[in-house]
């Protein structure tokens, strides 16, 4: 169950952040959690990055090829990729997120069985690829064909949904910086997904977070990998443009 209802009765706190005054959720965490993220030897998300590094060089599928067989050293080939996604997928003639792209590579080029979006292996690979953009500014793909997707995402962000009749923007634009019970409401910038979430005791992607938010407002979730979530992700990444990628991020 989600506890937003009772908490909302207490009321959304005062809005703090002015437009343009953008801030990663990292900034509002306590010093201990920031330290957990900052220390590579202590950041639990690095366990997934380490697993992803092993998967990157492991041959898979009918083609018996690894990611590295085509892409070589990820530090070279994948630098900046996560900072740019979602991107345009020529084959599918539509937008695609990084997790979807890794999944497609696997089935099309490695001839391997598809991985579930929330499978440990796919999350680990996405974490490893995203790690290659650690500290780089979010720089959305300039392909003009993505404009319509971002517009759709912006509309979703501003649409009230669910039994609580709340839009993402109600909390993450209008009330960001205020208090929801004891927690400070973040601006909702996807600077560090996949992310190690203490609540999950593990790592998960942005779409998993969307699922939680949607059940939080008592709305029917769209589902991980849905066109709605990809559109929302594309809009949020453009909204976060310039903020540094945190890979792997740690959040409560």
């Amino acid at each position: 169950m989600i506890r937003c209802v009772t908490v909302l009765a207490i009321g959304l706190g005062t809005p703090a952040a002015a437009a343009g005054d953008r801030q990663s959720g990292y900034e509002i965490m306590g010093p201990e959690l920031r330290a957990m993220q900052d220390d590579e030897a202590a950041n639990p998300g690095m366990l997934w990055v380490t697993e992803g590094a092993a998967l990157w060089v492991a041959p898979e599928g009918a083609a018996n090829r690894s990611c590295a067989s085509c892409h070589g050293d990820a530090a070279q080939s994948m630098a900046g990729v996560a900072a740019r996604y979602p991107a345009w997928n020529e084959a599918g003639q539509g937008p695609i997120d990084l997790t979807g792209r890794i999944g497609l590579c696997r089935t099309r080029h490695q001839g391997a069985a598809a991985l579930a979006r929330d499978s440990r292996a796919l999350v680990a690979l996405a974490a490893f690829v995203t790690r290659q953009s650690d500290g780089l500014p979010i720089a959305p793909d300039p392909d003009p064909r993505l404009a319509a997707t971002r517009e759709k995402g912006k509309a979703l962000f501003e649409t009230r949904m669910g039994q609580l009749n709340l839009a993402c923007a109600d909390c993450h634009d209008d009330a960001a910086g205020g208090q929801l019970a004891a927690a400070t409401i973040p601006q909702g910038h996807p600077t560090g997904y996949p992310q190690y979430r203490l609540q999950w005791e593990g790592m998960g992607g942005l779409h998993r977070r969307f699922e939680n938010c949607m059940s939080g407002v008592r709305a029917e979730p769209f589902g991980a990998g849905s066109p709605e979530y990809i559109a929302l992700e594309a809009f949020l990444m453009s909204r976060a443009a310039g903020l540094p990628v945190e890979a792997p991020a740690v959040r409560p």
Partner: peptide, 9 residues
């Protein structure tokens, strides 16, 4: 220990 505002379980 503060309760997360939107804890899922």
């Amino acid at each position: 220990v503060t309760a997360p505002a939107c804890a899922e379980s």
